[in-house]
Every structure is written in C-alpha cells, then in structure tokens.
C-alpha cells in the first residue's frame, strides 16, 4: 500500500503544484496574491465542458479554445479591473479583497449560467484506469503530472529566457524603472494575468474529467494549491511544484496511515508552521520579512 500511496501523493502533488503555479506566476510578476485563481479554474472547466461535452468538439480543439478564451479573459481582467483599481491607488489588502469579490462574482455567474448541478466532462482517454504499482489511476491524472512538469519548464523558460518574460519580472520589481528601460508596463501586466489564466485553463481542463465539473471544483483544490506555492516559496516557479508534491505526499500518507479525516488538518498545520518558521519557503524566495 505504501507504494500506491506514494504514487497517489505524487500525482495529487502535481495537481496542487500546477494550481500553485498560477498563484506564483501572478505573484512573481505583479506582487498580487490572486484569490480568484480557484474560480478561474472552475470557469475553465465549465468552458471545457461546453466545448468538449456539449458541442462535441475534439479535446485538443476544446483545449485550445478554452486556453485562448481564458487568456483573453485574464488580460481583460487585468486591463479592465486590476489596473483601474491600481490607478485609484488600491493596493495591498484592498487588492486582495478585490480578487475575493471577483471570485464571488465569477462563482455566482457560473451558478446562474450553468446551474449548480455537476456536469459531465467526458473522458479524454478510452481507458478508464491505469494500474501503476498498485495505484489505480485515471490516465488524466497521469497526464496532469506531465502537464505540470512541462508547464513549469515552459513558464520558467519564458520568464527567464524571453525578453517579454524578463520584462514581466522587471515590471514587478520596479515598474517605473522598467518603464524607463522601455518596457511596455501596461502590456506586460496584462500578459501576466493572461499567463496565469492560461495555467488555470489547463488545470480546469485536466481536473474536469477527474472530478466532474462542479461549482466547488476550484475552491476545494485551490486552497491546497495556494499552500503549495507558499511552501515552495511564493513566486518560485519550481517551488510551487516541489511544495505541491510535499503537500500531496503528506496528505496521502497521513490519510493512509493515520486517519483520513486528519489529512487537511495536518496539511494546514504544516503550512502554518512553514510560514511561522520559514516563510520564505523551501527555496528561500523573496524578501518576506517585516521588522
């Protein structure tokens, strides 16, 4: 059983890591903690369901459509909402509350448009489970692992090797200085949210087949995703993944050997302790200390 638990933990961890990636990207590139990320995931799952399940388009097409739409949505949110608030001088806590309000609005919108009943996201693969060392897993879950790894790599390369990516980081560090260097801050900020939304879109498309499309899809998982990105070091791309795997393993092992209802409790306790003792996370990310 230990082997299966470890494998399950790794897979769950990669799911958390992929979600945490979205949080880290926005934080790294704009310093904002986005509480609406979970709802973006749910929204993507609903969109994917509409294209793949209702319209019957092939999965690849549905994926591309969802990603594009979410990208545009992300940019629109940034341009139409976030930047307007930032112009008014809304920062810090208030910005957090804006993202909270946004998450409520998106959730409410989904309830109105799609209804609150769960929706069927058809399987992507023909095989319903794959047996890996005793752990029976849906192939979609394994795909999640690969997708998480690939996304992580791609995002990291994008942020560190491409001009746009480096520009994004520069804007986060000091937008005036970045502007002085000729970086288009406005465009860059929009891209940040667009990127995070793309990550959310991929999460949603993956999670839909695994859990079914429900209103609480994002909310349930995003808490752990958030925790992963913090555990690894907020803003650190690889950290989100590592943090996710650690949390996934802890949850899985605690569930298997201690008590299945204690999983979340222990995971949150560990998250709290990490923040209390080593808030910079595993990878010693960004200055976090206040006097």
């Amino acid at each position: 059983m230990l082997k299966s638990l470890i494998i399950v933990g790794l897979i769950m961890g990669s799911i958390y890591g992929l979600i945490g990636l979205g949080y880290s990207v926005i934080y790294r590139a704009s310093g904002i903690m986005n509480l609406a990320q979970g709802e973006l995931i749910t929204l993507s799952a609903f969109l994917g369901y509409t294209f793949f399940g209702v319209c019957g388009l092939p999965y690849g097409v549905a994926l591309i459509l969802t990603v594009v739409i979410m990208f545009v949505l992300g940019v629109m949110i940034q341009k139409g909402l976030v930047s307007r608030y930032q112009k008014r001088g809304v920062t810090g806590v208030y910005m957090l509350l804006i993202t909270f309000g946004l998450s409520r609005v998106i959730n409410g919108g989904e309830a109105l448009i799609f209804g609150s009943n769960a929706k069927r996201f058809p399987s992507i693969f023909n095989v319903s489970t794959v047996n890996i060392m005793g752990a029976h897993l849906q192939p979609e879950r394994i795909m999640c692992l690969f997708l998480a790894l690939i996304s992580m790599l791609l995002v990291h390369l994008f942020m560190t090797r491409t001009k746009t990516g480096i520009g994004m980081q520069a804007c986060a560090m000091h937008s005036k200085a970045a502007e002085a260097c000729g970086i288009d801050v406005v465009k860059s900020n929009g891209l940040t949210w667009g990127l995070a939304s793309v990550v959310a879109a991929m999460c949603g498309m993956m999670l839909g087949p695994i859990y079914g499309v429900t209103l609480m899809l994002g909310a349930n998982l995003s808490q752990m995703g958030f925790a992963s990105s913090v555990a690894g070091g907020m803003g650190n791309i690889y950290g989100a993944m590592v943090g996710g795997i650690i949390i996934g393993l802890i949850e899985s092992l605690v569930g298997g050997y201690v008590n299945s209802t204690w999983k979340s409790m222990i995971a949150y306790l560990i998250l709290f302790l990490i923040l209390a003792v080593r808030p910079t996370g595993l990878f010693n990310e960004q200055a976090v200390r206040d006097v």
Binding site: Y27, M33, G92, V93, L96, F226, V230, M234, L275, P279, A287, V288, R289, D290
Partner: peptide, 8 residues
C-alpha cells in the same frame, strides 16, 4: 511577516 504572507 509582510502582509501577503501574514494573510496567508
């Protein structure tokens, strides 16, 4: 902790 992390 800085406010985001305190919030978390």
């Amino acid at each position: 902790l800085k406010f985001q992390f305190l919030a978390l």
